[in-house]
């Protein structure tokens, strides 16, 4: 679809804004509807949009497969790490109040980190699913 100039130009214009919007949803989970899951989906949608217009090889170069796999693992690690850290600091699993001196600050920090973990993992999983779907049909020689 790179041959179509309308799609190419509009995608170029749009993708940065979609990414900023996704991260906005990520960081405003406690103010409005949003949070890690939706943010992950939006960010992944932006990258998938890039792949649709410019083709999978280019996207794979920008976001290599090992990065995606790392993201899946790192997100879960962040989530679990926060939980374990709260346990080490003397609370229950994911009991955020012990993370900082004041319980409210601790809760903010904890929720932020956990949501970040969820967002990273969701982005990674969505992208892996897309890479597998898109890479499968015609090119058996996947270049991972």
């Amino acid at each position: 679809m790179r041959g179509d100039l309308v799609l190419r130009v509009i995608a170029k214009l749009l993708i940065p804004f979609i990414l900023v919007f996704g991260l906005y949803v990520q960081f405003h989970g406690d103010y409005g509807p949003g949070g890690g899951f939706q943010a992950g989906v939006i960010v992944a949608a932006a990258i998938i949009f890039h792949a649709l217009i410019y083709g999978l090889p280019l996207t794979r170069r920008a976001v290599p497969e090992w990065v995606v796999e790392l993201m899946v693992a790192a997100g879960i690690l962040l989530y679990a790490g926060v939980g374990v850290a709260t346990m080490l600091l003397g609370g229950n699993f994911l009991d955020y109040s012990v993370l900082a001196h004041e319980p409210v600050h601790g809760q903010h920090l904890g929720i932020l980190l956990v949501e970040l973990g969820v967002g990273i993992t969701v982005t990674g999983v969505m992208l892996i699913i897309f890479y597998m779907f898109a890479g499968r049909s015609r090119s058996p020689h996947s270049e991972s």
Binding site: M1, D4, V6, L7, I10, L13, L14
Partner: peptide, 13 residues
């Protein structure tokens, strides 16, 4: 304003 004509054009094409 930016996306709807793009989608329409892609459909027509």
């Amino acid at each position: 304003f930016f996306t709807s004509p793009t989608a329409t054009h892609a459909l027509a094409r």
